[in-house]
Nucleic acid binder design. Structure first.
Lengths: 179, 179
DNA sequence: TAAAAAGAGTACAGATTTGTACACTTCCAG
DNA sequence: CTGGAAGTGTACAAATCTGTACTCTTTTTA
């Protein structure tokens, strides 16, 4: 059992459910059943822990979604698969919105590293859509941006508990936004 | 000079720039140049102040956007005008993302009133799009939801500093999402 | 004008938060 | 088996945050 990963598991879950600033180090210590000494030895300070959580989450999303789009051939199927993946995510009990959006809103004014990680994550997400559309397409960049915009909106609507049950409407909308 | 509105001005600006939990009552007192007695006499507690700020902001948005769509006739022009209004907002120096999204992410886990106000605001926003499309249209509800989703995504992309300079792409995407 | 309401300013109680210190234990590798 | 790295548990310093208390002053209103 890797204690580092266990701490990150607990911290990620707490940050995801309640936010970064509102969750104190003592609470992570209690729920992870480790000592504060260990927390500060491993991650330096609370900000270091936040960064480690975000970085690991980004890598996980990267692996999952890269696999999702590589399992299909044409742009239409790749986008459709990304949509399915998002709906599975929205339906999971852990879903509480996008942690990178929350990091951006909580840390952007102080220009701290979590905000930087969030911006990098979204830049990678745009590149995923560009690759899904095929980079040599005309205006692939802009079409990818429109699709990403729509997906970001879906995440928000899901966080507000307002996602429509019928996935078909979203799939149809995505198709309209394709080149 | 209305002291109540002045306090709300200052609090709204601070909450907008930095978030709700991170801004303390003492800071609002200092920047508004009022006493803590006045703050607590007027708003009860910090949560009451947050609620008052959100409520007033919702009413202001309601007035502005109702006026925007009533100034045009066909759905296409109404949506286009809403888009223009959003781009003006994104370009303003006060823009720091959607305060109701932030309220939802900071208060939803505690099921407090700010989250309720945020949900109500977004429900009203959906109704705005339904009215803009014309309520008797086929699947107006669902088309409005797709448009709202896209607009929520634009707000997020703007918060990340990633909105494209050329408004034409977004306008074109909106048209594709119309019935 | 006199009473009542509202505000200023300050102090403070009580809780919470981050981060450190220190003594003691566990565990593993040379 | 032994020394060092890592972990536990506790205590605590220092800052911060919410909310109240209390006195004094200003403003409004009857």
């Amino acid at each position: 059992m890797d204690i580092q990963q266990h701490i990150l598991d607990v911290a990620e879950d707490l940050f995801n459910q309640h936010g970064f600033n509102v969750v104190g180090v003592d609470r992570i210590r209690d729920e992870a059943h480790v000592s504060k000494t260990t927390l500060y030895r491993r991650f330096g300070d609370k900000l270091g822990l936040v960064e480690a959580v975000l970085h690991r989450r980004h890598v996980r999303f990267e692996q999952m979604l890269d696999e999702v789009i590589s399992a299909h051939d044409c742009p239409k199927d790749k986008i459709s698969a990304i949509l399915d993946w998002h709906f599975d995510w929205f339906g999971s009990p852990q879903f509480k919105g996008c942690m990178f959006m929350h990091a951006q809103s909580e840390f952007k004014c102080t220009k701290q590293k979590p905000s930087e990680i969030a911006v990098d994550h979204k830049a990678w997400l745009l590149s995923l859509f560009i690759r899904a559309l095929g980079e040599n397409q005309v205006n692939a960049q802009e079409h990818a941006e429109m699709l990403l915009t729509f997906f970001e909106g879906m995440i928000i609507r899901a966080e507000f508990g307002c996602i429509l049950h019928d996935k078909a409407f979203y799939k149809s909308a995505c198709l309209k936004l394709l080149p």
